[in-house]
Amino acid sequence: MPSSALTSFVVASRYMPVYVALLLLLIVAAIWVPETLSGVALSAIAPFGALLGIAALGQMLVVMTGGIDLSTPGTLTLAAMITVGVGDRADGRIWLAIGTAIGVAAIIGLINGILIGGIKLNPLIVTLAVGQVVIGVISRYVRTFPVQSPVPTGLSDWTATRILGVSPIFWIGVAMTLLLIVALRYTTVGRRFQVVGANPVSSQVVGVRVTLNQILVYVVAAMLYAIAGVALAGLIRNPGVNIGSPYLLGPIAAVVIGGASLTGGLASPMSTMVAAFFLTGLNQMMRSLGLPTALQFVVFGLVIIGGMLVSGDRIIKGVERLLRERRRPGHA
């Protein structure tokens, strides 16, 4: 059925730009800075791309409910600091540290969720405020252990290992992406979640537990940030209190470039993850090209604006218009 194929094309077209962008990036890199495409260089950025992607997946889930989460840097940093503090340089405490980090993050998410999903406060302001509180907690918490303390060596050694030539963090990112793809596509939980994002009022009418979904999404998102935070701590061994700051805009940028509908309901874990790699790769290339830091910020910002310009919602409208224009002559 050709019209069915057309439907799939229109529905899928919102996720296209990120793949095009990635392709362009690879072409540009191959021409000007081919050394960034070497195996070594790629496997060096893979874990960073993956952990940006993991945080972006959390942000994506929140955006799918029509919300936004600005507490990402706080949660992510706190998780990293807990890995240091609870880990206490002892390999035996790694799992305890990871568990605590994820558990504390879940509580932060729950607070976000109750304020936003339960009490229906504005997500932008709530998460910004909660993030602020978390940052306050962090600056108190880091005083309980020596400055520049490292994570347990077991953790940092593990991040330095290679599975099939790439850091295990990359594979965790891949696993998270697959997990979300399966959950959203093949489970009832994912289906209900998607429906709540697409239209909370209708979802309420048909009997889906809207509030519960809207609360839990912040919990799940915060746990994903925590995973990213722990991975980041392991990667850079002795994390400082500012390691989270690039993760305010980064995940949002990945979600937008990944083609999610900012009004909720539609997003793709795959293209969000790809977008995270695109952004990480772009960053890396700018550094290899020796662009001044100031200019890097400008380019990064422009790319996000570009991402908004070719965002999923606008593409769908454009495709619709094109189809309509094409039909016009037949009418006259």
């Binding site: 489970t187 009832t188 697409a198 239209n199 209708s202 048909v206 889906v208 509908s261 309901g265």
Partner: peptide, 25 residues
Amino acid sequence: LMGVLGVRVNSTIQSLRRFSRLAFL
């Protein structure tokens, strides 16, 4: 309705239990 979602998703949202086994669709 959930406007951005498809006919299939919209039709079965109230009967997912019927179309799933152990939470898998």
